[in-house]
Simulated assay, not measured.
Amino acid sequence: MQVRNAVAYPLLAAVVVILTLTAAVAWKHRRREIVLTQSLALLLAFALLVMWKPYRHVEDFQPPLLGSRMDVAANHQLVAFNVPAVAELGRIKTLLTRGEEDGWWHFEASFVTDAWHDA
């Protein structure tokens, strides 16, 4: 997510600059229909900026910190964790539950121990 945020914000800023410059040039040449179109696009860009909610707890989502090994599928739609018994199970469970409650993912736990249920 950090990479996505680092790319998304500068790209959105570039789009806003291009739309603003295009609208300014259109205004100078009295092309009001272009100004209107660019203004609507600017409003959409600002709406995206306001509604954009990057996952704030992504720094917690690092396998070395969690003490687990992570495998990612080629399409990035499936992530599998192999969590060792010495890992901080409570922290992992809290992170996964919080992400699911925030609507970022769905998770399923399989082959879990009593320690996982107690965490």
Results as ranks from 00 to 15, higher is better:
T37P: 00
P10G: 02
Q38W: 00
V16P: 00
A41Q: 08
A24K: 09
V15L: 14
A6N: 14
A23I: 04
V16I: 15
L12D: 01
L21I: 08
V17L: 14
E33L: 06
Y9C: 00
Y9K: 04
V15W: 00
V25A: 13
E33Y: 04
A14T: 04
L21H: 11
V25Y: 15
Q38P: 00
V16T: 14
I34V: 13
E33V: 12
A13D: 15
F46T: 05
P10E: 01
P10K: 01
M1W: 01
A6W: 01
A26Y: 01
T22K: 07
T22N: 06
R4C: 14
L11H: 06
Q2V: 05
A23R: 03
L44E: 13
L43S: 14
K28E: 08
A45V: 07
R30S: 11
Q38I: 02
E33M: 10
A13Q: 11
R31C: 03
I18K: 11
A41C: 15
T37I: 14
S39D: 05
L19V: 07
R31V: 03
A41E: 04
A26H: 03
W27R: 07
N5V: 05
I34M: 08
V16N: 05
R32S: 07
Y9M: 11
L44Y: 12
A24R: 10
L36T: 15
V7T: 12
A45G: 04
A45S: 13
A6Y: 03
Q2D: 10
L43T: 09
E33C: 00
Q2Y: 02
M1A: 09
L12M: 13
W27I: 00
Y9G: 01
V7M: 05
L11S: 12
A23K: 04
F46S: 03
